[in-house]
Write a protein that binds this DNA or RNA. Sequence first.
DNA 1: GTCTATATAGTGATAGAC
DNA 2: GTCTATCACTATATAGAC
Lengths: 196, 196
Amino acid sequence: MSAVSTPESRRDQLLAIAARLFAEKGFKNTTVRDIADAAGILSGSLYHHFDSKESMVDEILSTFQEALFAQYDEILASDEDARTKLERAVRVSFEAIDQHPFEVAIYQNEADYLGKFDRFRYLADRNTQSRQVWVTLIEEGVRTGVLRNDLDVTLTYRFIRDTVWVAVRWYRPGRGHTHTEVADQYVRILLDGIST
Amino acid sequence: MSAVSTPESRRDQLLAIAARLFAEKGFKNTTVRDIADAAGILSGSLYHHFDSKESMVDEILSTFQEALFAQYDEILASDEDARTKLERAVRVSFEAIDQHPFEVAIYQNEADYLGKFDRFRYLADRNTQSRQVWVTLIEEGVRTGVLRNDLDVTLTYRFIRDTVWVAVRWYRPGRGHTHTEVADQYVRILLDGIST
DNA sequence: GTCTATATAGTGATAGAC
DNA sequence: GTCTATCACTATATAGAC
């Protein structure tokens, strides 16, 4: 069992199945029986692996976010110019949509609602952290003169954040454009606009 | 069915309450008891006004979409230049977010899932119609030289559509910016980009 | 137009056998 | 690791009284 080829544990298989269903139908619309059916077992058997349905979505979201924010931290800490860092942050996000579409979709669709409960408080915290990442990069860009100085920073932050993540609604890995091509176009529009 | 000047019917009051809850908590997360509680009645009493919870969201969405698409049709039919029409379409959308935030939020959050059921097939039809509106305007812009001719039309359509509607996630009427100010900034970024 | 009372079905979760 | 069997609870919806 080498590190690279270790077969996915049963637990991880079940989590992957649940993630797909949560993303496609929504957390509340997905029953534990749906998950068990898709896995070819009975619903009671799921509770050998997980405490609750809530635990499943919790593990899916927290695992994904940990990996994503490690990437943002790396970019923030780098000594590249602001425009490059902003571009990299956008590209990392599109890569996440490509490689973890279900996790991104679940976060986009459920975080607002789930974040209200104590157990999912970390979702709101991550949201704040994400805001800091983007705002830092935008302010640095304005300060160093690579971005327009008449930008409303908060509005621009929301524009970028939403613009990037909302692509999870239509982007499908391996269909049409690659995530790199999509990121190219998005960065181009974002930086230079669509007009002549 | 009520005339323009008559006070809001009980039915409309209940629909407004349901719309707020569906937008805030999601359709599935909102129970008929939640709606009845918020209205100060018991859940059974709701069924004097509506067939089902599904009928409620159906009426909310179809009524809203009818009004919205009438506005798009008017823009498409006008003889202004492509850039003006595109701007107007963006502004009409932000106005909808301002005046019907709950309806827009419900559509954004639930249309993908609901659209799979026969009863809500019109949601998918409206989606196609919306695509035609934006693509028509973009292609006219490229043809008349007011938009860059290296744009991927489909990608640009998705960019604009998503960019506009996703604002419903954070925009709150009467707080911070007006919908006109937000539209100004969005149009500016969309057309000219954020870089110097 | 609302309430009382209740039918009916679904849904998350548990205990113990295999 | 999964199944059998089932519990407790929640949810939509109905019928008839007021």
